[in-house]
Design a protein around this nucleic acid. Structure first.
Lengths: 267, 267
DNA sequence: TCAATAGTGTCTATCAGACACTATTAC
DNA sequence: GTAATAGTGTCTGATAGACACTATTGA
């Protein structure tokens, strides 16, 4: 007996949830809006301990929003924002709604990451989670929505933060980071974390934050300009105490290589 | 209100199914076991028309198994093998079971492809499908299991076959092909379609079938040997009417680049 | 011998990394 | 002026593609 026509079957399938790993960029000097660092860190079970670990100079770092659990299991531990898939919304729409409710932000990039459906995902009933990953521009953030003490931003690569996550969310965040690293080199991922106009140094800062290593400014300029996708806006950034850098803008790219998300929005 | 702890909620989520795109390699000359070509092609709605389209010489081609639907919607059309996710099996196990029941084969590679959950996936009730893609070695196939007239193999890139598929399965197969192409270059995908020992010409045939273009034998040899992952077995293949080629074996690779399937089996 | 494929050697265009060097601002 | 970053030029080693060439079998 072969199953080819099961799409319409109402079987007793496990509950289905949609979660999102949201990345944003935050400069340590705080060039954008301020950011409560580890709000509600006093909760038992997860010490966030957001210390500035000077790994690679003082460039910007990746941050993710987490939500504190208000019920068992993993009570009071931090978890990825998410929720059950309701009625007639698509997976992508559910992820976008979820992101808006949690952070008040609209994503500049939203792609499906992976569907976790193992039977060893943690305590509690077994659940299948479709996980998305997203990028947002933090400077545009509406901080009013962040007053909720059960939502806070944390450095995405902090081992102590990751160790305190509920369920298998640590593995999920690490997988999302790996995908982000693999994607930043050949897609227009970087400028989606920045604003409309950005300098090459800022763009390089994104690459360095994502890849976790310093890059040669001269070579970076050459390769990123040769790759296309950005354009000299003609303006320069003034007010710095050195030679004013040019400002660039991102131009729409037809997904140069890489395979697009099949249900993704062609924005 | 933020949802962080929904994993245990029993919401009215859509039905969940697992499907698999299975690729195998078949030489036009039929060096392995014979293969019913388009069995049951008389069914209305999908003309398989398996003609040898001489696109790139006479190398091997990729084939996929399809299952004929026995109910509405898309009655009698061909679809990907799949079934509902039952009780306490993991997604990966469900895909493997499904593959075994359909083709009688154990996969040499099995990875999650994508989860399709749009609201426009075709007629009938909305379903969320977690789709896997797999590779099998056709020579090892147990053809007794293929007696079922509702299961047949088709060329994976035949436009007429793809056009006749049920639901959004055409898009799914095309996406799986794109992922396979992207992956064959930097992973040990190719030799999983071949047997234990293979010549470099056979290996090149896999690359050519997957990529859809001819490759220079000399350069292919250099690059594939430099990449590592295969080893000279010391034996040669006799019985050919030209210089006997060496036989190589695949050696285990620690996923040289690329990101492994997070719930995948580390085989 | 010829046909056919296996396998080697070599040239070249391209590209990434290293790094010296000049340019332009604030102070 | 100095400090600091922006931006340019150049060298070099690694690599992919083109392609000529030799090697070894069956017929």
């Amino acid at each position: 007996m072969y199953w080819a026509n099961v799409s319409e079957r109402q079987a007793s399938t496990p509950p289905l949830a949609v979660s999102t790993v949201v990345f944003t960029l935050r400069s340590p000097a705080g060039d954008g809006a301020g950011l409560g660092r580890g709000v509600g860190a006093d909760a038992a079970g997860s010490p966030p301990s957001v210390g500035e670990s000077a790994e690679r100079g003082a460039g910007p770092r990746l941050w993710i929003p987490l939500v504190r659990r208000r019920r068992e299991p993993y009570l009071n531990q931090w978890a990825l924002p998410g929720g059950p898939l309701r009625g007639d919304t698509s997976l992508r729409t559910a992820a976008a709604n979820n992101l808006l409710q949690t952070t008040g932000l609209a994503p500049t990039l939203l792609e499906q990451l992976y569907t976790f459906g193992g039977t060893d995902r943690g305590e509690g009933a077994r659940t299948v989670s479709v996980v998305y990953w997203a990028l947002v521009r933090f400077a545009e953030s509406d901080l009013d929505l962040m007053r909720d003490p059960d939502v806070a931003w944390f450095p995405a690569d902090d081992p102590e933060v990751l160790a305190g996550l509920a369920f298998d969310h640590r593995r999920i965040v690490e997988y999302a980071l790996a995908r982000l690293r693999a994607k930043v080199e050949y897609a227009d991922v970087a400028h989606r974390l920045l604003g409309e106009r950005f300098t090459l140094a800022q763009l390089r800062g994104v690459y360095e934050a994502v890849l976790g290593q310093a890059l040669d400014p001269a070579n970076f300029r050459r390769t990123v300009l040769a790759r296309g996708g950005i354009e000299d806006s003609g303006e320069v950034l003034t007010g710095v105490r050195n030679r004013p850098p040019r400002l660039y803008t991102a131009i729409s790219q037809r997904d140069p290589s890489g395979i697009p998300d099949p249900e993704g929005d062609p924005s």
